[in-house]
Design a protein around this nucleic acid. Structure first.
Lengths: 328, 328
DNA sequence: CCCATACCTGGGAGCGCTACCACCACAAGC
DNA sequence: GCTTGTGGTGGTAGCGCTCCCAGGTATGGG
C-alpha cells in the first residue's frame, strides 16, 4: 500500500520502467553524459509512456540555478497598469523566453524599495531583467550575481544594459518640430528620478538653448492621464504654445485628447509628438508623430544576455528613428 | 578551507548563529510550530543579521507546492503583443500576486498546443490562471490538480471560472446602437474558437433576428490591425452600413481609424462601438462608446481562487456596463 | 595472452528545507 | 508520590534530482 497513490511520475519510475538506474536515466533526460544508444532509446520511450516531466524545483535545488528569467518592472502602479510600452516589453519578454524554453516571471517593484537582491535570492530564477531603474539600485546587486542581471532603460556601467537612444530620438523629434516652423515648444517629462526620462529632457534643454528658445517643462508620469493633466497646465501657463513634445506616446496621446477637448486643432494650432511608436500612436486621429523604440529587440537582447546565450557588449544602445504622422 | 566560500546563507547558518537546531529555526522562520519567545527572537535577529532568504526551490521541493501563480495566455503572437486587454490582465495579475506575496509567471501558450498539464508539472507553481481557452483544453487538466486552475474568459464547469458578462454587455451596446436609430449594423468578431468571442456574436445574432435586421459579420482577431482589415471588408461588402460593433476595443479602434481613412464621419455617417473599456477608448477621437470589463477584479478573483485564499463559487460572472462616448 | 584505454553504468552523497517523531523538562492532577 | 499531560526542542528522514566516483564490460594495442 503506497502512501501517496497519485504522485507525479519521477525519474526513478522512468528508470525502473526502462530497466536502468536513476543515474543513467538522468544522463539521458538531461543529455549531460554518456549513454548507450539502447539505454537512450529505452529511457526516452519510458519517459514518453509515463508522461514524465522533470521537476524544476529539484533541478534548481541541485543545479543552483533555475529556468526562469524575471522581468522586474520598477514604477508606480498607474504606470505599470497603463503604459503601453510596458505592455510591449512584457509581451516581448514572454515570447523571447518561450523561444529559449525558459519561463518568465513578472515582478512589480515599487519605486521606493528596489530590492533587486531579493529577486536573485530565489535560485529558481536564472536571471533578472530590470526595466526602468536607477544606478543606485543596480549597485545594490552583489557583484557575484551581476552576470545574472541586465538593465533596460539606463546606460549602466554596473551591469550589461540595453536601451534605445532616446536622447537622439528626442532630438530628432524636436528638430522635426523646429523644421516645420514650431518655436513655442513645450515638453511633458516623465518621472524625474529615471535616467531614461532624463535624457530626452536634456535633449530638449540643449536644443532650446541652441535655438535661443524658452524652456517650457511640465512634469508627467509616463501615463496618458498624466499627459492630460500636463496639457491643462501647459495651456494655462503658456497659452501661446504651438507644439507639445510628450516624453512617451502615452503622455502625448493624453496631451492630444486634452488639446482636442480644449478646442485646439492638431496639428494646425498645436503640433503634438511622442516617443516609443506604440500601436495606439498609429490609430489616433491625427496619427501621432513619434520616434521608434525597438522594445522587442531590446528585451530579447537583454533576456539573451542574462541567460548567457548570447555575448553582448556591456552597453548596447539601439537607434531610434523618426516616424512622421499627421500630428506634427 | 570551505569549498564554496561565497554561498547563500542557509537555514543552518541561522540556526547555528542563534544557538538552536535547524528544526527550531525552521519553525520560527516559517511560523509553523511552537517556539519559545526567546528562541523566536534570537532566530529572527540572526536571520536579519545574516541576510537570510529562504530558498524557494527547496521549499517547493519539500512542500510539493510553490509560491507562484502562472498566467497562461492562449492566443496568437499578434494578439498577445497588441491587445491592451491582455496588458491589463497581465498587469493586474502582477499587482495581485505582489499583494499576496507570491510571484507571477507569464506563459504564452500557442493556440494549437494548449498543454496546460505541462504548466502544472512544475511544482514551483501553486496555481494557473488561464486566459482565453477552450473547454477541451481545460478537460485535459488532470482532476487531481483542477483545484489549482482557474479560467478567465470561459464559463467552464470543469474548473472555477471568472468572466465578464460579455453577452449582456454586447447586448447593451447593440441596444444602444438601435435606440439611437442605427439599423444597418455590422459586427467584427474575434477568434471563432474562443467561447468568450462566441457570446457577443450570439447576442448580435439574437438582437438582429429579434429586430428583423440582416446580419453582417466579418471576422477579426482581437487586434486593431484585424479591425482595420475588417472595416475594409465591411465597406466593400456593405457600403450602406451605419454602425459597426467591434468585439473588443482594439478591433473597434482599428475600425475607427480605417473608417476615418476612408472618409466616413464618426459618428455622423457610421457609429462605432467596442467592448472592454481600455484606456485608449477614452483617448480616441471621437471617444469610443464601449462596455466595461472589470479585468482587474476578474484577475484578482481568479488569482485568489487558485491560491485558495478566497472561497469562490464555481462560476462568477461580472456585470458589464455601457460607457457612452461620442462615437455612438 | 594480458594489460591499457576507452566507454558506459550504478551506488551514494547531498542541494536546503520541512514533516515527523521521540524526547525532555516542568506543571498540574489524583 | 506517581501519573498524565503540555509546550518546547533536536534528530532524522526524506522531497526529486544531478554530481562524483568506483567498478564494470567491450575494444584496442603490446
Amino acid at each position: 500500500m503506497r502512501r501517496r497513490p497519485e504522485r507525479q511520475t519521477r525519474l526513478e519510475d522512468v528508470a525502473k520502467a526502462a530497466g536502468v538506474s536513476r543515474s543513467t536515466a538522468s544522463r539521458v533526460i538531461s543529455g549531460s553524459g554518456p549513454a548507450s544508444p539502447t539505454a537512450r532509446e529505452r529511457v526516452h520511450s519510458a519517459a514518453r509512456l509515463l508522461g514524465y516531466r522533470p521537476d524544476q524545483a529539484a533541478r534548481s535545488l541541485v543545479n543552483g540555478s533555475g529556468f526562469r528569467v524575471t522581468l522586474a518592472v520598477v514604477g508606480t502602479t498607474a504606470q505599470v497598469l497603463d503604459d503601453p510600452y510596458v505592455h510591449r516589453a512584457v509581451a516581448a519578454a514572454a515570447l523571447t523566453a518561450t523561444s529559449y524554453d525558459v519561463g518568465v516571471s513578472l515582478q512589480w517593484v515599487p519605486r521606493d524599495a528596489p530590492r533587486l537582491d531579493r529577486l536573485l535570492a530565489d535560485r529558481t530564477v536564472r536571471g533578472v531583467v530590470v526595466l526602468n531603474t536607477t544606478e543606485a539600485a543596480l549597485r545594490s546587486v552583489p557583484p557575484t550575481v551581476r552576470g545574472r542581471v541586465a538593465s533596460v532603460g539606463i546606460g549602466s556601467r554596473t551591469v550589461p544594459s540595453f536601451d534605445v537612444d532616446n536622447g537622439g530620438g528626442a532630438a530628432a523629434v524636436l528638430r522635426h518640430l523646429y523644421a516645420t516652423g514650431r518655436r513655442r515648444i513645450a515638453m511633458v517629462t516623465g518621472p524625474a528620478w529615471l535616467p531614461c526620462a532624463q535624457r530626452p529632457v536634456k535633449a530638449y534643454r540643449d536644443l532650446m538653448r541652441a535655438a535661443g528658445l524658452p524652456v517650457r517643462l511640465v512634469s508627467g508620469d509616463f501615463t496618458a492621464a498624466g499627459g492630460r493633466r500636463a496639457a491643462g497646465t501647459i495651456l494655462a501657463r503658456w497659452p501661446e504654445v504651438d507644439a507639445v513634445f510628450g516624453i512617451n506616446d502615452a503622455a502625448a496621446l493624453g496631451v492630444l485628447a486634452a488639446l482636442r477637448a480644449a478646442g485646439r486643432q492638431v496639428p494646425e494650432d498645436v503640433a503634438v509628438a511622442g516617443f516609443d511608436d506604440v500601436e495606439a500612436a498609429g490609430l489616433s486621429d491625427p496619427g501621432l508623430t513619434t520616434a521608434t523604440n525597438p522594445v522587442e529587440q531590446i528585451i530579447s537582447s537583454a533576456v539573451g544576455a542574462v541567460l548567457g546565450e548570447t555575448w553582448v557588449p556591456p552597453t548596447t544602445v539601439f537607434p531610434s528613428a523618426l516616424v512622421r504622422r499627421a500630428s506634427a
